[in-house]
């Protein structure tokens, strides 16, 4: 399946674009997605934190992803 991942803030700058398409096996976990992205973009691994959001909620490491999900990479937030 193909996952479309929205990127924001420093994650967008590290990857160099505001969205990524990643091909992944069915039932790909959040953890596996993150591991793959960190391998491809080592600078992501140097951030204070990196979360994945699925349909506007923070996702647990073990959550599985589907093509229909709205997925985003969430670097450390700094609002306020």
């Amino acid at each position: 399946m193909n996952l479309k991942i929205a990127l924001f803030g420093i994650a967008r700058e590290i990857v160099g674009q505001s969205a990524l398409e990643v091909s992944a096996p069915e039932g790909q976990s959040v953890q596996a997605l993150l591991a793959g992205l960190r391998e491809q973009y080592p600078a992501l691994g140097r951030l204070s934190s990196l979360a994945v959001a699925v349909n506007n909620e923070y996702a647990e490491d073990g959550a599985t992803l589907s093509e229909r999900d709205e997925i985003a990479l969430i670097p450390p937030v700094s609002g306020g």
Partner: peptide, 28 residues
């Protein structure tokens, strides 16, 4: 509300100085 907002709300702040810029809180 303000303390929790700072921890969870997906907003990012970049500070610009005379000689550079930094994404706040991005690195340890």
């Amino acid at each position: 509300i303000i303390d929790t907002l700072k921890q969870v709300v997906t907003i990012w702040k970049k500070e610009f100085y005379e000689d550079g810029d930094v994404w706040v809180a991005a690195h340890p």
